[in-house]
């Protein structure tokens, strides 16, 4: 009864939220309306000046990494904080006694020639494409976050196929352990902050890339520094992706039996039809 009351209350609240949002949205200018405040107040400057001021062809990159670079630093910190939280909560025993080595699966090498070969063929392209997305972010959609996630996914793919890093295995070169990934994430966030503080050291505001002594043309300097910042985001994000995977997947054992709580009769159920 109590559960039903709760569900009713939740439905009431959500329904109210829905109606309220609907009422509010009707007052908003339509999406993409060129005469809406969102398109006439701040945006024109970004559209007209971004190329000249920041050197980035892609306006999204100009806004994210330069005009509102401080937000991006914050978002990087949010992602790092997620990795930190997972590390604290899930990998609590680190530094303590060693875990028992679990069986194959998410935590062990998958011995399959097909998977191994496919990973060898695909992974280099995946990792390279991640770097391309990072570098090309100035011109096309992409940048540090997207590239970082792709790179992290490449690492996760390798990790899934080749198992965790183990000192007695050659695969340990690739699978980044929790600590190594975490160091990567920290280093990325630190690098971002360091770029910001470096700008202060050269007399500008925090993250004021224009003052950095990287060349004559301020727009070009900003472009270079933006790439630096994006690279820092890239490192932080890919490190965090690896941390999340390592902390969540560690200890998963493939037992050769059905998964826990697996219902072993799906085939019989199918035959009814």
């Amino acid at each position: 009864m109590k559960a039903r009351l709760r569900a009713a209350a939740a439905a009431l609240i959500l329904g109210g939220l829905f109606v309220g949002l609907l009422a509010g949205v009707r007052d908003l200018p339509p999406i993409g309306d060129p005469s809406s405040p969102a398109s006439t107040h701040v945006s024109p400057r970004f559209i007209e000046e971004a190329r000249r001021e920041t050197g980035a062809l892609n306006m999204v990159t100009a806004v994210l990494a330069d005009y509102r670079g401080y937000d991006t630093l914050g978002e990087t910190a949010v992602i790092f904080a997620a990795g930190l939280g997972a590390f604290v909560i899930l990998a609590a025993s680190i530094g303590g006694p060693r875990r028992e080595t679990p069986g194959p699966g998410l935590s062990h090498r998958v011995d399959s020639l097909l998977l191994d070969t496919a990973a060898r063929v695909l992974a280099p392209f995946l990792l390279l494409f991640a770097v391309y997305v990072l570098v090309h972010g100035h011109v096309s959609p992409g940048g540090g976050f997207q590239g970082g996630v792709l790179f992290g996914l490449g690492l996760v793919t390798l990790r899934l196929v080749w198992g965790p890093p183990r000192p007695d295995r050659a695969a340990s070169r690739f699978g980044p352990g929790v600590r190594a990934s975490f160091l990567l994430a920290s280093a990325g966030l630190l690098a971002y902050i360091a770029i910001g503080i470096a700008a202060m050291a050269f007399g500008g505001a925090f993250l004021d890339y224009g003052v950095l002594p990287l060349g004559q043309d301020p727009a070009h300097v900003r472009e270079l520094a933006t790439l630096g910042v994006e690279a820092a985001v890239f490192v932080a994000v890919s490190g965090t992706v690896a941390v999340l995977f390592e902390t969540i997947a560690v200890g998963v054992a493939e037992t050769g039996r059905p998964l826990p709580n697996e219902d072993p009769a799906p085939v019989e159920a199918r035959e009814e039809g």
Partner: peptide, 10 residues
């Protein structure tokens, strides 16, 4: 999926 493997499926 990894988290599901670590905890419970149902």
């Amino acid at each position: 999926v990894a988290a599901t493997f670590r905890t419970t499926r149902r």
